[in-house]
Design a protein around this nucleic acid. Structure first.
Lengths: 340, 340
DNA sequence: CTGTTAGCGCATTCAC
DNA sequence: GTGAATGCGCTAACAG
């Protein structure tokens, strides 16, 4: 029976009621094999009866490691952090590790504050999740625990950073359009202040160059909105009516492009193929037609970040520093390949 | 100077180097006033010099409370949990409390597993965040810490639950349409298996009845997608061409309705006013025109959940059990009121 | 196989 | 003002 309102029973309570010593009770509960089966059964029965819950605080204090990690996000609102969070929580959860969630709200002071708090709580490692793929300031070296930067890499090459490979994503998108037989390809992108925008363009231009084809018109940059997608598509199609495919730097842009194509009477994908980026399901699966997109595989990125932290904890020397670019995937839907 | 790779210094290190006793060092660092100023200064200087970080584990063990809470989500993917999470993290963060994040992935076994882990870690309270507003199974009474259910209320009225007031939201939506001079209002809703769908309809019908007006046609239910929004709007407008406003059970539905209206040559908001639900910014601010919607105020719900946990921790008797329905807000945009 | 002892790092009595 | 002792709950050595 548990009593509401407090954590009542301790290991010594169990020991007393089972008529054994503290040490024996501990061994019995922890599955050590130097305990008689009968004794173990008695201890377990008592523990269950009085609702004993071992105190991880005491255990951690003794063990010198807490079995917790800090997950520090620079901004929870962004839609990119959630999947990363899920991946990390998933990977850690399986390993009996619990996750402290901190949100710095894009504020450096608050970040420092949270960092202190995490160290106070003796986390065994920290994952820092940024909201853009642009490099962010390092938390600094000399921290007593391993730190892995996810999505936004650290600006210090001595740190360990993980970020999706946007250049490869750009290449992947263009190569898919080429594979679909398109040759007159335009490019609409988002906010030019984002590294993600430029990286995706870079990859796209590489793939086109490899195929010996030019981009139709210039890459168009402004902001990550459907509005801009609509407007940019109108400009692009007015100036280059021959265009048979448009690559977009985000799914929002792509949805705007779909709208404009519809308004102008261009069929998608027959007349124009459209490909987005991010594979954000609300946008990709609800559009007409559904949107082909590049999936940055963020959940896997979160898992990998967790794995790296584990690695670094188990073997402090093993951390491979520098930025690793993780592979992205192509999700083909109706906006590039006609449905039957 | 901190040494990488471990948490090196302890309070006794500080005491030694400052030539004081453990007790004095402790008092100095914790701002107790029975310490000479000179001594305190010396201790603080040493602590800073060797990069002393107090061990919250030890402190918690001694204090009998950890200053942590558990945040258990039944499913992180849902877009409703994130704002709640943010609100809770925000409220706790200000109070020096750290948050353990657990995701049960909709699995009861995993939920039990995480619950154990949280209790092991001696959390001072737990918030359970569901993904729908339908009641969910209680974690059970007799837990040693206060539990607050957010979004999805517990099915046990003895628990403390917080959920947005969907009925009021339905009323709010209809009253806004009425205030805009609309009188022939149709209603498109999502998955009939969700309490949210029915509650919003209930509120809508209440408001119409209060105004002495009938709903045009029947409420249409199917699923929470733009596809259904498009299809339902087509049906509704074909059967009831006189309709001058459509209330939708979600923003996705509303976006579908906007598409169909456009296809059929009905102007929004001039010919038909459209109102959504959830105020999901990606959808509301990117549409043509921008979408009026009901905001369930989830961040505030998260904050309130945190406050309730605080309350229950500080004064175990004070917990008001039962389900509290939190107010929602109207966000007016161009789909009901013409922009100038 | 079982029990006794020591201590993880810290805050808190209580003497001095 | 300061310091020596006590114990939070637990596990790891050792002795029996």
């Amino acid at each position: 029976m548990k009593q509401p309102g407090s954590y009542p029973s301790t290991l010594s309570d169990v020991a007393k009621r089972a008529h054994v010593s503290l040490a024996t009770a501990s061994k019995a509960l922890n599955g050590r094999d130097d305990v008689a089966e009968a004794t173990r059964a008695r201890v377990l029965a008592v523990a269950d009866e009085i609702g004993f819950v071992p105190n991880a605080l005491a255990r951690s204090l003794l063990a010198g490691r807490s079995g917790t990690v800090g997950l520090m996000t620079s901004d929870l609102v962004g839609r990119f952090v959630l999947p990363i969070l899920m991946g990390a929580e998933d990977a850690f959860g399986a390993g009996q590790v619990n996750v402290f969630l901190c949100d710095a709200r894009g504020d450096a002071i608050r970040e420092q504050h949270h960092l202190r708090a995490l160290l106070n709580r003796r986390v065994d490692g920290i994952i820092v999740v940024g909201r853009q793929t642009d490099p962010r300031p390092s938390l600094g070296g000399g921290l007593p625990v391993p730190v892995v930067y996810a999505y936004a890499p650290s600006d210090d090459p001595a740190d360990v950073s993980l970020t999706p490979d946007n250049v490869a994503g750009g290449r992947l998108a263009i190569n898919h359009l080429l594979a679909c037989g398109r040759t007159k390809i335009g490019l609409i992108n988002g906010d030019p202040a984002y590294a993600a925008a430029h990286d995706r363009t870079t990859g796209a231009l590489e793939a086109l160059a490899a195929a010996g084809l030019p981009l139709v018109g210039q890459p168009l940059y402004s902001e990550w909105t459907e509005h801009w997608g609509r407007d940019a598509a109108a400009v692009l199609l007015a100036n280059h009516p021959e265009i048979d495919a448009i690559m977009c730097g985000s799914d929002q842009l792509a949805r705007g492009v779909l709208d404009t194509a519809r308004d102008l009477g261009r069929r998608v994908p027959e007349d124009i193929a459209v490909i987005g980026y991010d594979n954000w399901d609300v946008l990709t699966t609800n559009s007409r037609p559904e949107l082909t997109s590049i999936d940055p595989n963020l959940q896997e990125l979160g898992r990998e970040a967790a794995r790296r932290v584990f690695q670094a904890i188990d073997d402090a020397g093993a951390r491979r520093s520098g930025t690793t670019y993780l592979p992205v995937r192509l999700m083909i839907r109706g906006s590039t390949v006609p449905r039957r």
